[in-house]
């Protein structure tokens, strides 16, 4: 049941991101809302469901943005792997998490840019622009994940000891 509800929610989020937010223009296209929400959920819950949502979310983002299916979810999981490796190296509870997030989120945006660059041959202009977006999204993920943990403290205590 959780998986069905999660799938419906994530598809709805992808539709909102790829249509409403693209029309809104203020945060499109650089601030990947779906990525931020999923990452925050992963940090605060650390469940198999969050990985499944990453996978499905990435697929639907690719379908709605006319991209190669699998590119976004591959990018998601590469940044998650980087995050997992860094939390192993920097195990301190909050500062370690934030540092790991900063690096992995920046990597996500850089990989996105390099992928786009590969597909569209856009040159190297704007590459540095992706680092501030990575840092901004990491901070959002950090605060959002702690907000989720604060709102649902029981699950948070059970799951928060990652790395």
């Amino acid at each position: 049941m959780k998986y069905v509800t999660g799938t419906i929610l994530i598809v709805a989020l992808c539709i909102i991101y790829t249509s409403f937010l693209t029309g809104l223009r203020f945060i499109f296209p650089w601030f990947n809302v779906v990525y931020v929400c999923l990452f925050a959920y992963y940090i605060s819950r650390e469940s198999k469901l969050s990985l499944y949502l990453f996978f499905i979310g990435g697929i639907f983002l690719d379908i709605f943005t006319i991209s190669q299916v699998g590119f976004t979810s591959a990018n998601f999981f590469i940044s998650l792997l980087i995050y997992a490796l860094l939390t192993r190296i920097f195990p301190a509870e909050r500062s370690g998490k934030l540092l790991s997030l900063l690096v992995s989120s920046t990597c996500f945006y850089l990989i996105s840019y390099i992928t786009l660059n590969f597909i569209t041959n856009h040159g190297i202009a704007g590459l540095l622009l992706y680092i501030p977006w990575g840092i901004a999204s990491a901070l959002c993920i950090f605060f959002l994940s702690f907000t989720i943990s604060f709102l649902f403290p029981v699950n948070h205590e059970r799951k928060i000891s990652i790395g």
Binding site: L51, V69, G70, A74, L80, L81, A84, I162
Partner: peptide, 24 residues
């Protein structure tokens, strides 16, 4: 615990690359 965390990530990453190949 670390292995339990990493292994699913690697499996999903592999699946993503399979999807990319099929998409191509």
């Amino acid at each position: 615990k670390y292995k339990q965390q990493i292994i699913p990530l690697i499996i999903y990453l592999f699946l993503s690359f399979v999807l990319v190949s099929l998409s191509m």
